[in-house]
């Protein structure tokens, strides 16, 4: 900026060729749209969060009892009590989980944990269902994902998610490209190995972080209520 011996038209000319001057409209529009989007987000975010929470609550019976069990409960017009709580835990770094405790007929039927992690395209949000003592996975649901349509988005499919049901929570799951032969293997989606691996990793982390706290809470509950562990 220290070029004092310039005439006015010269400065005008130089100004005209700077990037800032060329791009003033882009910058102005960017700030304007940025502000507009921020206010849209501020207004609508609570509503969107509430929608997600509602969906989570609706999914809890299915994730804990399985589709057939949830259906049976609905036809018998019995209701499940769902208590939300937050746990801060984690082996490597502290992570806060939103936990839904499913109680029916006075007993803890199981737990649903909300968790998320990086997928191929964007964050994947999952709901993982555990049985009452957090020994096995009872269900998996994809709450949000933006994976490649037709490939990664197949993590939504019931058949693929069903592979997780019944897996022991004490192991680390692996996505494999061949037919799974071991109990800790999940068949990866063809053409979407990264999405499949991401889901396995997110579930693994969730299991590792929550198995102990959930089991503790469950045993605490059963001692307090003097209840026996429920068998399948």
């Amino acid at each position: 900026m220290n070029i004092p011996q310039q005439t006015a038209p010269d400065i005008g000319n130089r100004m005209h060729h700077t990037f800032i001057f060329q791009a003033w409209l882009v910058l102005l529009l960017a700030s304007f749209f940025g502000a507009a989007l921020a206010s849209v987000q501020l207004t609508l975010a609570p509503k969107i969060e509430a929608n997600k929470l509602n969906e989570t609550r609706e999914k809890v019976p299915e994730l804990v009892l399985g589709a057939a069990g949830a259906q049976a409960m609905a036809t018998q017009n019995r209701h499940m009590k769902i208590e939300q709580q937050f746990i801060e835990t984690g082996t490597r770094q502290k992570k806060s989980y939103s936990i839904f405790k499913a109680v029916a007929d006075g007993r803890t039927k199981g737990w649903v944990a909300k968790t998320s992690g990086q997928g191929y395209a964007d964050k994947i949000e999952l709901l993982v269902g555990f049985d009452s003592d957090a020994e096995t996975i009872t269900g998996l649901f994809v709450l949000g994902q933006k994976e490649t349509p037709g490939l990664g988005s197949k993590i939504n499919e019931t058949a693929w998610r069903g592979q997780f049901i019944g897996k022991a929570a004490s192991q680390q799951l692996k996505a494999v490209k061949t037919e799974p032969s071991k109990p800790d293997e999940i068949k990866a989606i063809t053409g979407a190995t990264i999405s499949s691996k991401s889901v396995c990793d997110i579930v693994n982390q969730c299991m590792g972080d929550l198995r102990q706290p959930l089991a503790d809470m469950a045993s605490g509950d059963s001692v307090a209520g003097d209840m026996q562990q429920e068998n399948k």
């Binding site: 989007l37 849209v40 987000q41 509503k47 929608n51």
Partner: peptide, 10 residues
Amino acid sequence: TIVDRFLAAY
């Protein structure tokens, strides 16, 4: 983005 957020909310 506005449409996307609006649909997610309503």
